[in-house]
Amino acid sequence: MSRFLFCLSLWLLGTVAQAQAHAELRLAVAANFADTLEALAADYQASTGDKVTVVRGSSGKLYAQIVQGAPFDIFFSADADRPKALEAKGLVATGSRQPYALGQLVLWPAGPTPEDALKAFAYGRFSIANPRLAPYGKAAMEVLTKLAILDKAQPRLVRGENISQAYQYVYSGNAEAGLLARSQMRNDDDFWEVPTNWYAPIEQQRVVMKNSKLQRAAEQFLAFMQTEEAEARILSAGYRLPGAH
């Protein structure tokens, strides 16, 4: 190899290494977990210096964007179905599909008793996430069906594009109550945790995208999420951890 080619090779390697060092991880995350993930990303950036960009949306819309080629490195879905579908399409790094949190559905506000609040199903505007796009909306429909009040509730349902918008409808007074995510509640909020046997488990899964150019950085971030500090933050945000009973 000529001296010129040798020097050129060193320059190219240095340029690639520098580009990798300054690359930003792009994380697509379901709306319910977005605030928690942004807090985790801030912790990660503070400890490593690596940059992370968090893009939030409904699981359905993010899934569609990924299928169309959106350049995300990791997808944190609010369900297991969409990560499985991406895996079936060959868009996922081998072995990267894993659960990261278990979501919990709550009724808010709950009133003096949960039974009082449930009257909103039949007599007021009631907020849920769009069941076609958001797993929490699908779980809400399962609860309405189990209680045999879906027919009464249907005309009065206000469907948010995602769970964040569903929360906003209640917060702003555009709906009297709603079936929302436990992670959206403050400890002093008047909410009631819906029994977990009233709906299918909301197992939230994540995947590393096969076309990501930052596979190693993605793996490092996911390893960080399994530390005690990160898991404590996830629990305090209102989720259960995979494997919890």
Rank of each mutant, 00 (worst) to 15 (best):
M1R: 11
F4E: 07
F6A: 10
G14K: 07
T15K: 10
A17R: 00
Q18P: 03
A19W: 01
Q20V: 11
E24V: 13
L25E: 11
R26T: 09
L27H: 11
L27C: 06
A28S: 13
V29E: 08
A30S: 12
N32R: 07
A34S: 10
A34T: 11
A34H: 09
T36H: 04
T48M: 03
T48Q: 06
K51R: 15
T53H: 12
T53K: 03
Q68M: 01
F75T: 03
S77P: 12
A78D: 04
A78C: 12
K84W: 10
A85K: 14
A85Y: 12
E87A: 04
A88T: 06
A93P: 03
G95W: 02
A101R: 06
L107R: 05
W108E: 07
P109L: 01
G111M: 15
P112W: 09
E115H: 02
A120E: 10
Y123I: 15
G124A: 15
L133F: 05
P135I: 03
Y136C: 05
E142I: 03
V143C: 11
L144Q: 00
I149H: 06
Q154K: 14
P155E: 15
L157W: 00
L157M: 07
N162L: 06
V170N: 09
A175K: 04
A177C: 12
G178C: 07
A181Y: 00
A181P: 01
A181N: 05
S183E: 07
S183W: 00
D188G: 12
D190L: 05
W192Q: 06
E193L: 14
P195E: 08
P195H: 12
T196C: 03
A200C: 03
P201Y: 11
Q205Y: 11
V208G: 00
V208N: 01
K210W: 03
K210C: 05
K213C: 09
K213G: 14
E219R: 10
M225A: 07
T227Q: 09
A230D: 02
Y239E: 04
H245M: 02
